[in-house]
Structures are given as structure tokens and as C-alpha cells.
């Protein structure tokens, strides 16, 4: 069992959270309490970081509640586990928390097990759930980061390193391929295009019908399968649609920083509220929706992705909108003066 010296910041954060959750989620918390908590969080960087750690634990429960299964499916196993745990409590020692089941590596490439470690990574899939992010180092030294609700499939063989982006958003910092005697091309396949990285750092996002690529360093060649290759340079963002059309734009002119998610933030500049809310919805379970009447309000700001409730709250403070929350999983952003 973990133990630690009393930490006054932690104890204060716990005291706030205990008060905040006194009512079921259908009852809005006391605005005065909420304001005091917000002020406390804003007063010191450590307050905020302890608070977000508490929220990260809370998110594990929300993840279970949001699953598309009847509550009976988890209530029964949990109470069964509860009974067996209290019988054997303290018999099992906590092993330094080496392997909590957080994060999910789906191992598909086990067939190649005998062929050696790096070969066995071929055919591997990595995925994240809603609100999760994950970073992995691949055998060739490539750093791969997965944003919320993302799935990729790896095919690394003697001739190429291919990552298929099935859904979601990734950031890649390509490795030097030290384990291969020759340099294998590094490719990313999306529904609309094949991207060839030429020693580079870049982000790729798969949206409905559109691939979006933002380049930080190096070069990326875009092949839309129609005989033309377009080379993208750092600072550029391109959108590739199903017809193979490219729309090029300076990343600096975009309404949203395409790689801010790597730091756990959403950074916007004069972005439509409707788009901001849609962006926030990618990181949470349930239904988050922005009413048409307020969708074209403009938003500039930095929002913490790990604390969706605080992000919504700060929208309500900055704009003439209010957050209508029927349950934790049904939230609407609506005009301040609507009923």
C-alpha cells in the first residue's frame, strides 16, 4: 500500500474534490464553491498539477461509465471482485505498481516471435481510447505519438517502414534506422494519400474525407495516387481531400496549433466556437455539442485537454455562453440568455 508524508497541497485538493462531488452529477455544483476551487487552482502551478492528477484518476471511472454496456455488466463483476478483495486484503503486496493495466498495447505481431525482437514489431497495432494519448519508441528509433481515439498499424520490413493511420492523429519524429544496413523509406498511409518522410518531424490527422499534414522539420513528399508528388516544407499545413486536391496553408495562419496536443493543450487563434467545441469533444466520452446560434463566436486561448470540464468552464467565462450539463456525458454549449 502506498504511503507518503502529508502533503498540504494534496490534502487541500482532496478537500475541494470531496466537496465538489457531494451531489450526483445531475445537480450542478455550487458556483461559489466552483469559483473558490478555480481560484485555488490558478494561484499556484503545483495546485493545478495536483488537481489534474486527481482528475486523471477520475477519468478512469468516467471511462468505465461511458462504455456502451449496461451498468449491470460492470456492477456485478465489481461487487464480486469487491468481495474477494476484502477477503484477501493485505495478502497481496503492491509490486511497486510496475504494470498497472493503463494504456493498451495490442500485440498482433506475436507470430514472428522467434524471428527476433525487431521483426516481431512488424504488423503491430497501437491504439488509444478517447481522451488518451500515448508515446512509443519504435525499433528504428522513430518516436511515435498517438493522440486521442487513434489507431495505427505498423509494417516494417526489409524494404520499407510503413505506418497506416486508420483513424485519429499522430506525430512522428523519424529515426535514423540504425538497425537496418540501409536506409529504408518511411511512409505514412492515410485514406487520401501516401506521405513519404524525408528525415523529419510532422503531424498527420485523419478526419472524415480529409488528411491533414503539418510539417515542423525536414521534407514530406505527398503522393495522392494520381501521378503527382508534392513536396511540403516546414511551417506548411496541407489538407488532402478524397479527390486528391491539396490545399496548402501556412501553419502560423491556422486557427489551431496542430501540434499543441503533444503538450496536452488546445491552442486556438480566432477559431470558431463550433470548431473549438468539436475539437474538445474528441477528447471526451459522451455527447458534447455547440448550439448553432453561438457556433460562429471567435475563440483565442489555451485549454488543458486533460481537464475537459475546466476547459468548458473557461469558455463560459470568456464568452456569452453557458454550459448546460444534464449528465457528465450530455453537455451543450448554448447562448447565455437561452432558457
Amino acid at each position: 500500500m502506498p504511503s507518503a508524508l502529508p502533503d498540504p497541497v494534496l490534502e487541500q485538493a482532496i478537500a475541494w474534490l470531496v466537496q465538489l462531488r457531494a451531489q450526483p452529477s445531475g445537480v450542478a455544483p455550487d458556483p461559489a464553491l466552483q469559483a473558490r476551487i478555480d481560484a485555488w487552482r490558478a494561484a499556484d502551478g503545483r495546485h493545478e498539477s495536483v488537481w489534474s492528477e486527481l482528475m486523471a484518476s477520475e477519468a478512469q471511472f468516467q471511462r468505465l461509465v461511458a462504455l456502451p454496456v449496461a451498468p449491470a455488466q460492470w456492477q456485478q463483476p465489481l461487487s464480486a471482485l469487491n468481495r474477494s478483495r476484502s477477503r484477501r486484503q493485505s495478502r497481496r503486496r503492491w509490486l511497486g505498481g510496475v504494470a498497472l493495466g493503463l494504456g493498451s498495447v495490442a500485440l498482433a505481431g506475436l507470430a514472428a516471435r522467434q524471428a527476433g525482437l525487431f521483426d516481431s514489431l512488424d504488423g503491430q497495432r497501437y491504439a488509444t481510447g478517447t481522451g488518451d494519448q500515448r508515446r512509443v519508441t519504435l525499433g528504428d528509433g522513430t518516436q511515435l505519438a498517438l493522440n486521442t481515439a487513434t489507431a495505427v498499424q505498423l509494417q516494417f520490413d526489409a524494404d520499407q517502414r510503413l505506418i497506416t493511420l486508420e483513424r485519429g492523429e499522430i506525430f512522428i519524429d523519424t529515426g535514423r534506422d540504425a538497425i537496418s544496413p540501409r536506409h529504408r523509406p518511411f511512409l505514412v498511409q492515410t485514406a487520401q494519400a501516401r506521405l513519404q518522410a524525408l528525415g523529419t518531424r510532422f503531424a498527420v490527422r485523419q478526419q472524415a474525407g480529409v488528411t491533414r499534414l503539418s510539417l515542423l522539420e525536414g521534407r514530406v513528399a505527398v503522393d495522392t495516387g494520381q501521378g503527382t508528388r508534392t513536396v511540403i516544407v516546414p511551417g506548411e499545413t496541407v489538407e488532402i481531400d478524397a479527390g486528391g486536391n491539396l490545399r496548402r496553408q501556412a501553419t502560423a495562419a491556422a486557427a489551431m496549433d496542430p501540434t499543441a496536443w503533444l503538450d496536452g493543450t488546445l491552442v486556438t487563434r480566432d477559431m470558431r466556437l463550433g470548431d473549438v467545441v468539436a475539437e474538445m469533444a474528441r477528447y471526451r466520452h459522451g455527447w458534447l455539442y455547440c448550439e448553432d446560434g453561438v457556433a460562429s463566436l471567435k475563440v483565442s486561448g489555451v485549454f488543458q485537454l486533460r481537464d475537459g470540464e475546466a476547459a468548458l468552464e473557461s469558455l463560459a467565462q470568456a464568452l456569452p455562453v453557458r454550459i448546460e450539463q444534464r449528465t457528465r456525458f450530455w453537455v451543450r454549449v448554448t447562448a447565455l440568455n437561452s432558457r
Binding site: 500500500m1 502506498p2 484518476s57 478512469q60 471511472f61 471511462r63 468505465l64 462504455l67 454496456v69 455488466q73 460492470w74 463483476p77 465489481l78 471482485l81 469487491n82 478483495r85 476484502s86 486484503q89 493485505s90 497481496r92 503492491w94 498497472l100 493495466g101 493503463l102 493498451s104
Partner: peptide
């Protein structure tokens, strides 16, 4: 479901029956 439950179960390991 199993993944989410295992995570919660691990997180609550060692907590007393009543608080749990």
C-alpha cells in the same frame, strides 16, 4: 470493459472495504 475494470481494480487495490 475488462481493461477498464482491471485498471480501476488495480487503482483501488489495498483500499479498505468501506471507502471502496
Amino acid at each position: 470493459l475488462v481493461e477498464a475494470l482491471a485498471t480501476i481494480d488495480a487503482m483501488l487495490e489495498g483500499l479498505g472495504a468501506k471507502p471502496r
